[in-house]
Computed example of a mutant assay.
Amino acid sequence: MPQITVDHSKTISFDRAAFARDLHTATVEIAAAKPEACKTQFRPGDFTAFGYEDPEEQRHAVVHVTLGLLAGRSDETKAKLTETVLELLRGHIEDDGIVLHASAEIRDLDASYRKFER
């Protein structure tokens, strides 16, 4: 915990390492996570479709960040963290003239959540 997943269009210019570092820092400061518990998985998508536009034109890109946290954070804490995530995305994705659709959400990990390290 936290389990962070970043799904994004492959076509964006994204400083993923700096974003992850800043996101982990924000998650520790805002949601009281432990630094060593922050884990982020990036999943670039090969194909992004938007509305009825021709996807080959690549005029739109998508990035969605999901943060899975142990239950117990207030709605205010979650809102502050998602707003911070969006601000970090603005700073770490280059404006290449495409329309960027960015979103973030926090979900509570189910009580059945378990993990191991090796």
Results as ranks from 00 to 15, higher is better:
18 A>K: 13
99 V>P: 01
60 H>F: 14
43 R>H: 10
52 Y>K: 11
92 H>F: 05
6 V>N: 03
13 S>A: 13
88 L>H: 04
70 L>H: 09
51 G>K: 06
1 M>R: 07
9 S>C: 09
29 E>W: 05
42 F>V: 11
78 K>V: 14
3 Q>P: 00
47 F>S: 09
32 A>K: 11
97 G>T: 09
41 Q>G: 02
77 T>G: 00
27 T>R: 00
1 M>I: 15
50 F>H: 13
99 V>D: 03
79 A>R: 13
46 D>F: 05
106 I>P: 06
113 Y>N: 06
13 S>G: 04
107 R>S: 14
63 V>E: 04
56 E>W: 11
34 K>Q: 12
45 G>K: 12
44 P>T: 06
20 A>K: 03
79 A>C: 01
55 P>T: 10
80 K>N: 13
103 S>W: 12
25 T>E: 09
27 T>W: 00
78 K>T: 14
49 A>Q: 13
53 E>P: 00
77 T>K: 08
96 D>K: 11
29 E>Q: 13
31 A>S: 08
103 S>C: 04
24 H>Q: 08
107 R>T: 11
108 D>L: 11
105 E>W: 05
103 S>I: 10
110 D>Q: 12
13 S>W: 01
76 E>T: 12
4 I>N: 01
91 G>T: 07
40 T>D: 00
112 S>V: 14
35 P>R: 05
118 R>M: 07
21 R>F: 09
20 A>N: 10
68 G>W: 02
42 F>S: 06
74 S>W: 02
83 E>T: 10
34 K>R: 15
104 A>G: 03
55 P>N: 01
82 T>D: 07
30 I>C: 00
79 A>S: 09
72 G>F: 07
42 F>I: 05
65 V>M: 02
111 A>G: 10
72 G>R: 07
91 G>E: 02
48 T>G: 08
10 K>Y: 10
102 A>N: 03
23 L>E: 01
19 F>I: 07
55 P>G: 00
46 D>C: 08
69 L>R: 03
113 Y>Q: 04
54 D>G: 06
64 H>P: 04
73 R>E: 08
68 G>A: 01
63 V>A: 05
70 L>Q: 14
100 L>T: 08
53 E>S: 12
47 F>M: 09
113 Y>F: 15
44 P>I: 04
11 T>V: 13
105 E>K: 13
96 D>V: 13
25 T>H: 02
24 H>S: 14
48 T>C: 13
92 H>R: 07
49 A>F: 12
9 S>E: 09
76 E>N: 05
14 F>V: 12
33 A>K: 11
